[in-house]
């Protein structure tokens, strides 16, 4: 297992090559749709659809869910949900071609599996909350915002990575 993972870690693309292709994809997306990419938007649609299915009246009363609910269409019928389905397919193809598919929890050998999952859950909750406050995540706000020189996109990018470096010390045991 150890040899396998070490071999895998050397099978990734050159980051400049990956970055170049990612830039071309963003360019193509703007050329086609006039907008950028996104990721957290699809998860928001998922939450809205879930709440709307379980308690429709509650969803309609809430000022936030109701922004994304319409009478004659599912909240899941959005561009970003289709894009997210594509992301799952694309990542599955790439992982499959490189032999990276399999159920596993990836964590530093210095921490337990449980600790990794607890921090993953907490990190996810924070990211989900932050992405709503900032109206987008690393893809939608930072990356796609920067492509069109959006001031908000640059601020979000600096806030994410700046805070990341500031607090990295407190989480070092999880990673190094």
């Amino acid at each position: 297992m150890k040899i396998d993972t070490q071999k895998n870690s050397h099978m990734y693309w050159n980051p400049y090559f990956g970055g170049f292709l990612l830039g071309i994809i963003i360019l193509f997306t703007f050329y086609m749709t006039g907008r950028g990419l996104g990721a957290s938007g699809a998860m928001k649609s998922g939450v809205v659809a879930l709440v709307d299915t379980v308690t429709p009246s509650h969803a309609e009363k809430n000022a936030y869910y109701s922004k994304f609910i319409s009478e004659d269409d599912s909240p899941l019928n959005t561009w970003l949900v289709f894009e997210a389905i594509g992301v799952l397919i694309g990542a599955f193809l790439s992982g499959g071609l490189s032999g990276r598919i399999g159920w596993r929890t990836q964590h530093s050998p210095k921490i337990t599996r449980k600790r990794r999952l607890v921090f993953a859950l907490g990190g996810g909750i924070l990211f989900g909350l932050g992405a709503q406050i900032a109206r987008g995540c690393t893809s939608g706000a930072a990356l796609s915002g920067m492509a069109v020189l959006s001031t908000g996109g640059f601020i979000t990018m600096f806030a994410i990575f700046g805070t990341g470096f500031l607090v990295a010390y407190f989480f070092r045991k999880n990673w190094i």
């Binding site: 957290s40 932050g130 706000a141 806030a159 805070t163 990673w175």
Partner: peptide, 16 residues
């Protein structure tokens, strides 16, 4: 929002 995401990024190791 960005600052909260930054903490989430380091804690969880992913972005969406």
């Amino acid at each position: 929002g960005g600052a909260i995401m930054g903490v989430g990024f380091v804690a969880g190791g992913f972005c969406p």
